[in-house]
């Protein structure tokens, strides 16, 4: 038994309409609903938390400031917000070319499968550590692979939407995700092999 009042999309559109008319409550509701996931997404684009905070704030400040000029029909409010945030962060990063440069390099050069020695050496204590390990693996993915994974799995965007948000074609998005998953899988396979080796050492 499950009772849903209205779908997320129609609700967003309603809020959007009310924001355009200057409804502060609707604006608060949109902020409340999306600022956390936006911040989460922003964190994948820049490790600098104060920069991300500022960018999230600015997206919302802009919406309120320009509320009378907002497009009447947006296909998806969520999509609009994410794209706006990405632009914001990239504008902020552009001012610091050194940083942008590094993130570019990351995309090209980070090997798909290198295992963090620190992650391995941490003595496993409990179940949550297991999930943390996947997190560690995620932390080593090239930035754009991680970005695509986040948008796909956490934010639940379609490949088409992700392509538009990231400004690449759909094939690239599929590629980012595929590569990321392959490196997760490889580390899993490595585990199997290494446990085999261990057993052999144990027996001989």
């Amino acid at each position: 038994m499950q009772i849903a009042t209205s779908t997320g999309e129609t609700k967003d559109h309603d809020l959007w309409r009310r924001i355009r008319m200057g409804d502060e409550q609707a604006f608060t509701a949109i902020f409340e609903k999306y600022h956390r996931t936006l911040y989460n997404y922003g964190s994948k684009l820049s490790p600098n938390s104060s920069l991300v905070e500022d960018a999230v704030q600015d997206v919302f400040i802009d919406i309120w400031r320009l509320r009378h000029n907002l497009a009447e029909h947006v296909t998806s409010v969520k999509f609009y917000l994410y794209r706006a945030l990405r632009r914001r962060i990239h504008v902020a990063l552009d001012k610091f070319p050194s940083m942008e440069e590094i993130s570019e390099l990351d995309d090209e050069d980070t090997p798909a499968n290198h295992t963090n020695s620190e992650a391995i050496l941490i003595e496993a204590e409990s179940s949550s550590v297991r999930a943390q390990r996947i997190q560690e693996l995620l932390a080593q993915l090239p930035e754009r692979q991680l970005e695509a994974l986040t948008l796909r799995y956490f934010d639940d965007f379609s490949i088409e939407e992700i392509a538009e948000i990231m400004g690449v074609n759909e094939k690239s998005v599929r590629n980012f995700i595929y590569k990321a998953l392959t490196s997760l899988r490889q580390s899993r396979e490595m585990l199997l092999i290494s446990s085999l080796i261990f057993w052999m050492l144990l027996f001989f």
Partner: peptide, 10 residues
């Protein structure tokens, strides 16, 4: 994956 990519919430 959904959980872990959503770990950076404020």
């Amino acid at each position: 994956l959904a959980k872990d990519t959503g770990r950076h919430q404020p």
